[in-house]
């Protein structure tokens, strides 16, 4: 279980103090597929960085399975990221001179998995994300954006993390592949008890998650997804007219947004 307690992150910008994450608290049970929506610059990626121990909060704490990240030394945070976290970055952040296979094998190498075993698992993962086997050994910079996105997702799954943090995981994918990835994430959360938190502008993806959060000016509120609304997943749509930061048809029905489940 992940507990986020009064998380604050501030930055100095000249004389101003910016609070992209402002007193955020929530809990996620294991196996939950959750989404965070919000406008660009609302602090979604910053929150993801804090949960993934890439960044340290100004105040507050993240407790993972009873273990507090606050005050944890860098070495242990690295172990935490390697063992428990899978990242899907918005810009993929793959190593350009390595092949798709090598990129997926990297986290397993750091975890000490034997070479043959990690190669085998990397091939399986790339197959799961539907990357053509011919492209497994192709260098990353010779793959398309969508293909790179799939490699990034496969890399995030490599060490079977307890928590996957995904920043726009379907942002560069075509509709069909996007649906497949959403299904894959759903399966992971359901069958493998993996907690998945995605930042997305894709209303279809957001609607398919178990819990949906909205981040606005650093504050988090939870929206309740209408039962049965997860059936349809559609492609892109014009920018959201409602200021939610979501695109695509609104399948969530009337705004059932409740006051923040755990917000300040």
């Amino acid at each position: 279980m992940i507990e986020v307690k009064n998380l604050v992150r501030t930055f100095k910008s000249g004389d101003r103090t910016i609070k992209p994450v402002n007193d955020v608290s929530f809990e996620l049970e294991r196996g939950t597929l959750a989404s965070i929506v919000g406008k660009s610059g609302s602090g979604k990626s910053t929150l993801l960085s804090l949960l993934g121990a890439l960044d340290k909060p100004t105040s507050g704490d993240v407790v993972v399975n009873g273990v507090s990240l606050a005050g944890m030394p860098d070495g242990k945070l690295t172990n935490y990221r390697r063992r428990d976290i899978g990242f899907v970055f918005q810009q993929f952040n793959l190593i350009p001179n390595l092949s798709a296979l090598d990129n997926v094998m990297l986290p397993m190498e750091f975890a000490g998995v034997r070479k043959a075993a990690r190669a085998e698992r990397a091939r399986q993962l790339l197959a799961q994300v539907q990357l053509d086997p011919d492209k497994h050994v192709r260098r990353i910079n010779r793959l398309s954006g969508g293909e790179q996105q799939r490699v990034a997702i496969a890399r995030a799954l490599a060490n079977e993390p307890k928590l996957i943090l995904a920043d726009e995981p379907t942002g560069n994918l075509d509709e069909q592949t996007g649906e497949h990835i959403i299904d894959l994430l759903s399966t992971l959360s359901r069958d493998h008890n993996t907690t998945i938190l995605v930042v997305t502008h894709d209303r279809a993806l957001a609607n398919k998650t178990d819990r949906r959060f909205r981040l606005q000016q650093g504050r988090l509120t939870e929206e309740t997804v209408r039962p049965g609304a997860t059936a349809a997943v559609t492609g892109s749509a014009p920018a959201s007219p409602d200021g939610s930061g979501l695109t695509g048809p609104d399948l969530s029905g009337p705004d059932l947004t409740s006051p923040a489940v755990r917000t300040a």
């Binding site: 690295t78 390697r82 063992r83 990242f87 952040n93 190593i95 990297l106 750091f110």
Partner: peptide
């Protein structure tokens, strides 16, 4: 630097 950051993000120890 960015690549090093990515390696660290996915769990590469400093010594590696």
């Amino acid at each position: 630097r960015r690549e090093i950051g990515v390696l660290k993000a996915i769990g590469a120890p400093n010594r590696t």
